[in-house]
């Protein structure tokens, strides 16, 4: 199942680059690949979520990315995974967890941008980005919720 989810995540991440959002902020993405991480987390547990996410990030960096994009995505992914664990333990549903993931993902990437660009101005970007993160987080949460329920019959064994 790890392999199937990783493959699905890779494709989602790639397809996402073709989706242009009607927002005048560069670099805004829906974060569709996080659906796979959430599914792995809720179906099979935190260890699977970490495995699937790390594999996806490494593979997509090798296939489509650059060293810089790898640093951005791995930092975002690590924070999102931590957030996933903490927020689900704190009693949030998949929607809350998804929004938290999106916000933490952004925060981590802004911090990396701060280190790479060396300018504090990147933090100006964080507030509007988090507003968008709520919307994309809800979309991803909804899609994950639907998928987990629909695939319940297939994934019962895990």
């Amino acid at each position: 199942m790890c392999a199937a989810l990783t493959a699905a995540g890779l494709i989602l991440g790639y397809l996402e680059s073709f989706i242009v959002l009607p927002v005048h902020i560069p670099g805004v993405r829906i974060g569709l690949a996080n659906i796979v991480s959430l599914m792995a987390f809720y179906i099979a547990g935190p260890v699977y979520a970490v495995t699937v996410t790390c594999l996806r990030v490494i593979l997509s960096a090798v296939l489509f990315g650059s060293p810089v994009s790898f640093i951005y995505s791995i930092s975002g992914a690590v924070m999102a995974l931590l957030g996933m664990y903490v927020f689900s333990k704190a009693g949030f549903s998949i929607y809350g967890v998804s929004v938290a993931c999106a916000v933490l993902h952004n925060t981590a990437q802004i911090c990396v941008a701060f280190i790479l660009v060396g300018s504090g101005y990147v933090f100006y970007y964080l507030a509007p980005l988090c507003g968008v993160a709520v919307i994309t987080g809800l979309i991803v949460g909804f899609l994950s919720d639907v998928l987990i329920n629909r695939l319940a019959g297939i994934t019962d064994g895990f």
């Binding site: 507030a127 988090c130 507003g131 809800l138």
Partner: peptide
């Protein structure tokens, strides 16, 4: 979606608008 989720979402929206 439960109460905590809604609280989290509202908090994030308020913070991001204020920011």
């Amino acid at each position: 979606m439960n109460k905590r989720d809604i609280l989290l979402i509202i908090t994030v929206i308020i913070l991001s608008v204020a920011g």
